[in-house]
Design a protein around this nucleic acid. Structure first.
Lengths: 209, 209
DNA sequence: CCATGCAGTTAACAACTGTTCTCTGGAATT
DNA sequence: AATTCCAGAGAACAGTTGTTAACTGCATGG
């Protein structure tokens, strides 16, 4: 599928990626709406005008970052929903997977958490679009689970959204304690596990009331 | 308790409030980290330097906005937790209260949702501090509820945090459909109600497993 | 009634921003 | 080998930013 692109295109994608990486770094302590294009090019060591060869604006760059950040999250979600074992085992594995992902992609997680409700409309929309796709995927997985027998579509989607939001909240909490001592990080993991467990219990008794 | 302050102080607080209001308006489509002090003073119709009579920086103004925004939320939380009736009735009333609050204070809700994970550290910390106080308050209310008999403190705090996060998510969802047709707004209310109900069911069966 | 305090003004500063136009060197195409 | 293409450089633009300093006028307290 992928052509072995010429030196030309290869170099272009290289600086494009450099711009994305530099931006992600700068966004550690500011929001996208205050990120300047000169700031980014300066960090890469390239002329300000070179920016336009890759992005129309910093908002445009932001949308590209959404693809990158949530693209890396997609396989994780697949792994979680297709996980085997009983409820508690699956929850523990999910929390651990989220923890790992935050440790390996902290900047991506921070970017999504920050810009999900951030000041740039196009980026907010891009994130919401991707999250809607995640929820859809989770819904499909839930529908195949025997626990969800008798559930109508609206309730399945409701639960899927609850899970997706919970995943993001958990990721954000792990991010807050990234540099904290192991003991505190463990407490966050335990609290997240309990949250998921309570939701899981609610799910099992949903059709009783 | 409150002195009838002189004309002097009265006028000062007036322009201070004007600065806060103008900032809140400007933050409708940008983040605090990109809000300039000149931008704010221009919107108020006052000299840029006047800003310093009230705030050290825009970050400082942001912290003041946190007090204002979450201060107005505090009484609402009290009303919700002290609400009487069975579980479903309380949930419906809570969702409706949140809906009302979003309609009457949309800018406040947007500000909190945006800056909770935003690019300004001092503001993030201020918000987290206030939310921790909310969770504490909810914990106390839960402890007095017969449904929570036998729960340990950690689980109570876990549930309280879950409720607080859920409240913010719900508020943010209402915000997204503020200008949407009634039908869509109703669907959001229903989904939020169901979420809360599922959590409530999980709560009732928590000690069984 | 006079002296002090202080909210807000005016002017100026160096530094920074996004965007346009023109140019260049080397890869890609023929 | 000659030609086209295009990622990136360079310079210049008008406009913006935060911050400093010295000021003015009016409410305040003696």
């Amino acid at each position: 599928m992928s052509h072995t692109l010429g030196l030309r295109q290869a170099q272009k994608q290289k600086t494009r990626q450099a711009l994305l990486d530099a931006a992600l770094g700068l966004l550690e302590d500011q929001s996208l709406s205050s990120l300047g294009l000169r700031e980014v090019t300066r960090a890469v060591g390239v002329a300000p005008t070179a920016f336009y060869r890759h992005f129309r604006s910093t908002a445009d760059l932001g949308v590209a970052l959404v693809e990158e950040a949530l693209g890396s999250l997609h396989p994780m979600i697949r792994t979680i929903v297709s996980s085997a074992g009983d409820s508690d085992q699956r929850i523990e594995r999910a929390v651990e997977l989220i923890d790992r992902h935050v440790q390996t992609h902290p900047a991506h997680v921070r970017f999504i958490a920050r810009e999900r409700h951030g000041g740039v409309q196009s980026v907010r929309e891009a994130i919401q679009g991707q999250l809607a796709r995640f929820a859809e995927e989770v819904t499909d997985a839930l529908a195949k689970d025997p626990v969800s027998e008798g559930w109508d579509d609206e309730d399945l989607l409701m639960l899927a959204n609850l899970y997706v939001d919970q995943m993001l909240i958990t990721a954000s909490l792990f991010l807050d304690v990234l540099e904290a001592p192991e003991e505190q990080r463990h407490r966050v993991a335990q609290a997240a596990t309990r949250r998921m467990r309570l939701i899981s219990i609610g799910r099992e008794h949903w059709l009783e009331g």
